[in-house]
Design a protein around this nucleic acid. Structure first.
Lengths: 107, 107
DNA sequence: ATCTATACCTTGCAATACAAGACATTGAGA
DNA sequence: TCTCAATGTCTTGTATTGCAAGGTATAGAT
C-alpha cells in the first residue's frame, strides 16, 4: 500500500494531458507534475513511458536545441493519443466515482 | 494503460474501508465492490490481499458456519488496520487532487 | 445423482514505478 | 582553466501488484 503502487496506470494519462496542453519534453513534464502536487516522479519512470507511448503511436517527438543544456525531445499528441487521453479521462472518472462510493459508505 | 493497472494500490484500501464498515468475508467483499460500481474483481485478487493484510496485522479473521455453503472467514480491522485505512484515505485524497489538477490544466 | 451457488485458495504471468546508475551539454564560479 | 551544478536523455534490475485459470469443498435444489 504505497504511493508508488497507486501511481500505476495514472502517470501515462497525466503525461498525455500535459502534452495535450502544449508540446513538451520529458524533463519539463517531471517539473510540471511536481508543480501540480505530485511527489517527484523519477526520470526512470517518465522516459520509458514516453518511449512506449511513442512506440504505440500515441505521441510523436522532435529534437530541438536548448540554450541551457543538451537537446530536448519535444513530444506532441497524435489523434490516437488524443483518443487514449479521452479513454484515460473516462476511466479515471469511473475509478474516482467507485472509490469515493466505497469510502462514503452510503449503501 | 488498462483499468487493471489503475486498480493497483487501490483495492486493498477499499477492502479496509468495507471491513471498517462491518465485519465481512471475502466472497461478500467481492459482491460489495461490484455493488459500488467496480467491474468484477477477481477472487485471485481479493484472497491473497486479505491474507497479506492479515500477515501484516491490519486485519484479524474468524471462521463462522454458513447456512448456504462452506465456512466463511470473517475479517475485522485492527487498530493498525484503522491507521492503514486513514493513510489510504489521505493518499487517495492527495492523488485525486493532483490528477484533477493536471486534468483541469489551470496553471 | 447431478447441478448450481457458495466459499476459499494457489500458481504463474504481465505490467508498471522506481532506484541507481550512465552519459552528454551548457554556463557560472573558484 | 578547472570544476561544479543544472540541464537533459537513457538503461538495467527489482519489487509489487491484479488477474486468469485452475483447484477444492459444502449445501440445497432438481
Amino acid at each position: 500500500m504505497s504511493q508508488t503502487q497507486m501511481m500505476k496506470g495514472i502517470i501515462d494519462g497525466c503525461l498525455l494531458a500535459i502534452i495535450a496542453k502544449k508540446e513538451c519534453y520529458g524533463y519539463e513534464m517531471a517539473e510540471s507534475l511536481s508543480k501540480y502536487g505530485f511527489d517527484t516522479i523519477s526520470e526512470g519512470t517518465i522516459y520509458p513511458l514516453l518511449m512506449r507511448m511513442q512506440r504505440e503511436g500515441l505521441v510523436t517527438s522532435v529534437l530541438r536545441a536548448s540554450t541551457a543544456g543538451p537537446k530536448r525531445k519535444y513530444y506532441s499528441l497524435t489523434n490516437e493519443g488524443q483518443q487514449a487521453l479521452n479513454d484515460f479521462l473516462s476511466r479515471w472518472g469511473q475509478l474516482e466515482k467507485c472509490v469515493n462510493a466505497v469510502i462514503k459508505q452510503e449503501n
